[in-house]
Design a protein around this nucleic acid. Structure first.
Lengths: 344, 344
DNA sequence: GTGAAAGCGCTAACAA
DNA sequence: TTGTTAGCGCTTTCAC
């Protein structure tokens, strides 16, 4: 990596504009309290020299970094196999950019990485962290709390906080969305509504199951079969379902991928969808939901907005754009909507 | 964003270990030329205090940042709708982590963003950039070259470099992979092999078309129809194909998504795959290729490895881990392999 | 081998 | 309003 040409310093700008470094600094940082003609001269000098502030020097004294870490625990490849995370990332990026913050991405792959991430966060490189922690037993949240930097979680964390829930997170209404889906199936006249769950150590999956149970309180336990958010898991579960309860007339799958798998098995067994079995997914992952046969009725969540909101909450601290307005001390839950297509 | 507790400085470590700041610094940076007992004492002090070096202070003097920007131009949502980019990102992240570098993600959404990114890169926040620039007319590459920082491109850039090709990039062998695919179809005895292209302003798509032509030099031009890397585009193209050349007996689709669309239309028209029409995709995007009906024969590229390699090339400058070993002055092309499943 | 001291580029008191 | 000055925490000559 070759060394680049030395860039002009504030000193150079000040000299060229015929002012002190302090005044030049003031102009660069907004120009409040500097008389117009001077502002003008400094601005010109900045342009002519192509001056860009040295962030390291600035951080050294301000102790701010205008950077936010996005931490993604990634025990499984799955996290990346669907566009879910990418969409959140995009929302986050947009919001951070709007506030002139940089996005530092921290991907973790195991124990060693956890230590590394903990060190990084504790090391004061960033002003805050956005964390995607998927599992109940994830050590990451603990590490991060110990690092003592402002944090917003993506999805409701699985652990309960010892001292009473001042954990900030953004989640979508998994339980409510599941309820809507199942109610829709019931309204369609289905009476033997099954549920293929997600991995229940993730709160999103657990919440969806709860939503199902809210409506189908006393359903046959055999109508609930475990899945894992993958198409293969959906196939397996659907076979089991067909085995134990061949009379099943509706399936609420924990996500679209699972539903896609179920759909395939149903076709394989000659069941018509939705005539014989109605199917509903969750996520409204377009590339999946629109491409299944038939297209999938599903529960939509605004994933990009979740990302934006996370960033907004993080930035909205005492030093944030709205000093008065306190960040919430716990979770924010975004609504979901049922999207009707052909499968139910 | 609340201010966190003041962290221990090198000064504190030195005091605790009973050495000078300079010695403490030496130990923290590897400990060369410091006598063992002192090293030991400093190490202990670091642990006890939980000392983490202040990166801003360090950068201020070293002018290095141990950070690399990943720039992703994202004119279309598509970039994120497939796991392609996510996989590269993962490869990049792994490699950077191994070299203690941070990953700063820069997502761009339009003209304004370009200026912002240019400023950031020129501003000396990072030691280098990994750039994904998809289109021929993208202004980003120019901006970045002007920023004058070491850069590696993901995919062969569409523009040719004025002063003779010292553009470093990593690509996979799109042309060779396409050739293999088409040859395989020919070997199957197919004589009317069609190609559904990708967007031809992307070099990957253009190269795949070239590969097709290498083998099918004098095919009916109507066997080549434009697609856009999406399933919808694949459907459209397949319909056109069936219209103009109902006798088509094989299709090489520019990517798996396109192939999935084509497959659907073929089924719709009662054509059996592979009996009536053999189909091959490109990418081996598992969630797509394995889940189509029938599972897709396709050309695999090692996407994660591309990411790793990009990072490795960037880091391998004069200051990198292998000072002697120069980075290549142009492109590195990774091989592809044909993965046989049921569709051809 | 170790320490003293200078200084990276910037902001923020404080004086003027 | 503007300038002077003192660091922020670290690395790196340069003496010792």
């Amino acid at each position: 990596m070759t060394e680049t040409a030395p860039r002009p310093t504030l000193e150079a700008v000040a000299a060229r504009a015929g002012v002190s470094r302090a005044t030049a600094s003031r102009v660069v940082n907004g120009g409040d309290g500097v008389r117009e003609p001077l502002v003008e001269r400094v601005r010109r000098a900045v342009d002519e020299l192509g001056y860009v502030p040295n962030q390291a020097a600035r951080s050294l004294v301000t102790k701010r970094h205008d950077a936010v870490a996005v931490v993604v625990a990634e025990p499984e490849t799955r996290v990346f196999a669907d566009p879910f995370f990418a969409l959140q990332l995009r929302g986050i990026s947009k919001e951070l950019t709007a506030h002139d913050n940089q996005l530092v991405l921290l991907l973790t792959e195991g124990r060693d990485d956890h230590a590394r991430v903990g060190r990084y966060l504790a090391g004061g490189h960033v002003d805050g962290a956005l964390v995607f922690s998927l599992h109940l037993d994830d050590p990451l949240p603990g590490l991060i709390r110990r690092a003592g930097i402002p944090t917003v979680f993506g999805g409701r964390p699985g652990w309960s906080d010892g001292d009473g829930g001042d954990v900030v997170y953004v989640d979508s209404d998994n339980r409510g969305g599941a309820r809507d889906a199942v109610r829709h199936l019931v309204a369609l006249g289905r009476t033997r509504v099954a549920h293929i769950t997600g991995p229940l150590d993730q709160t999103s999956a657990a919440d969806r199951l709860d939503g199902y149970r809210d409506v189908m309180a006393d359903a046959d336990p055999r109508l609930v079969v475990p899945g894992d958010f993958t198409p293969a898991g959906g196939e397996r579960a659907m076979r089991e379902l067909l085995d134990h309860r061949p009379d099943v007339d509706a399936v609420f799958a924990a996500n679209d991928l699972t539903a896609a798998g179920a759909l395939r098995v149903l076709r394989e067994h000659g069941r018509r969808v939705p005539e014989d079995v109605a199917v509903i997914g969750f996520d409204d992952m377009l590339p999946v939901a629109e491409q299944t046969d038939p297209p999938l009725t599903t529960v939509r969540q605004d994933i990009e907005e979740m990302g934006r909101l996370m960033a907004r909450l993080l930035l909205r601290g005492p030093d944030g754009p709205h000093p008065g307005e306190q960040a919430p001390r716990s979770g924010v839950v975004l609504p979901t909507t049922l999207v009707r297509r052909a499968s139910a």
